[in-house]
């Protein structure tokens, strides 16, 4: 390495101020020659300083995702559907003045017509009012079950992923057992064993059967994030486990879980309707979409509107939540931008 181009500490005569540029020059030049490229000392600093100067916007994952979502017609349409359904659940009075329980048998099975846009059911109750009032149990169960499953699953998954060890092993085995139980079959078995079945029981059952999905998702996210260099750096600074979790791991791990939670709302609403239709969910005199559907099943040919309207709104609602989840997933993935 006596050919003169090899990096060498500048001789001891150099002063502190004069050395930097020379050493930099020498070092860069040597490498630049190896790469057969012109020496580019200083270019990096100049170019990047300009890049810093002209981007005043503070970008963040959620901020960018929101910008993306606002410009997506699909997301806006789905969000409007979801908001409408939620509004129905909160204040059904805004959508209909008819009392869903004010029924007259003379109207039994009357098809849609003036005075009743969706027609009347077997008992002669207004179907439109029933659908409006039936949104509440679906939405309550949907948000409650998806919310609780997400909180529980994410908490367990985060602890299992972060600490590993026996807790992780035990939780993973329990999750496997729950996975082996099909959602509907498990629902039928559990609910038919209960003395009374209401919104709470159904929601609890859907949490019990739904949390492992979220747990697995969260666990794998945490495992992949916890090895990241910035987590190691925080640990090297002396950060506590709680701080590492709250500041570093969760913000970087939560996005897919939020996406799945949105989709799970749709799944839960569908599952509630299915279980009710099968006769193990909500029971008359409760008003819900599943109850309406189960009433419709025996008179499908005679009165198809009984199936058509509750079925459509159920499908549209579920579709809205599933699609929102999908669009959200794409918006949260920077690689797709």
């Amino acid at each position: 390495m006596s050919d003169g181009t090899e990096v060498r500490r500048p001789s001891e005569g150099d002063t502190a101020t004069g050395t930097e540029v020379r050493a930099e020059d020498q070092f860069a030049q040597q490498h630049a020659e190896e790469a057969a490229a012109p020496p580019a000392v200083g270019a990096g600093t100049a170019g990047t300083a300009a890049a810093v100067g002209d981007s005043p916007r503070q970008a963040s994952l959620w901020g960018d995702a929101w910008g993306e979502l606002r410009r997506s017609p699909l997301f806006i349409a789905c969000a409007l559907v979801a908001l409408t359904i939620v509004a129905m659940a909160i204040a059904p009075g805004l959508f209909t003045r008819t009392n869903p329980r004010a029924c007259s048998l003379t109207n039994s099975l009357t098809p849609p017509g003036p005075g009743a846009v969706f027609g009347y059911d077997l008992q002669g109750c207004d179907l439109y009012a029933n659908i409006i009032y039936g949104a509440r149990p679906s939405i309550i169960i949907g948000f409650l079950a998806a919310g609780a499953a997400t909180l529980f699953g994410a908490a367990v998954g985060a602890i299992a992923g972060y600490y590993g060890g026996w807790f992780d092993a035990v939780v993973a085995r329990i999750a496997d057992i729950v996975f082996a139980v099909p959602l509907i079959l498990g629902g039928i078995v559990i609910l038919s064993a209960l003395p009374s079945r209401g919104v709470w029981q159904i929601a609890l059952m859907l949490v019990l059967l739904g949390w492992p999905q979220i747990m697995r998702l969260m666990r794998s996210q945490v495992i992949s994030v916890k090895e990241a260099d910035y987590v190691q750096a925080a640990r090297a600074l002396g950060a506590s486990d709680g701080r590492i979790m709250a500041r570093h791991i969760l913000p970087n791990a939560i996005a897919p879980v939020v996406v799945y939670a949105t989709i799970y709302i749709g799944v839960v609403i569908g599952a509630e309707a299915t279980l009710t239709f099968l006769g193990v969910g909500l029971q008359l005199p409760a008003i819900s979409w599943g109850v309406l559907l189960s009433e419709a099943q025996n008179r499908l040919l005679q009165a198809p509107h009984l199936l058509l309207f509750p079925g459509s709104i159920l499908v549209v609602t579920i579709l809205a939540f599933l699609t929102m989840g999908d669009v959200l997933r794409d918006a949260l993935d920077p690689r797709l931008r």
Partner: peptide, 23 residues
């Protein structure tokens, strides 16, 4: 260890992985 860690720090290889993208 918390106190001792003040005195030893680390610089990582991959500058894209060593800074938390959310901070």
């Amino acid at each position: 260890l918390r106190t001792a860690r003040r005195k030893i720090q680390i610089i990582f290889q991959d500058p894209y992985a060593s800074l938390n993208p959310r901070m």
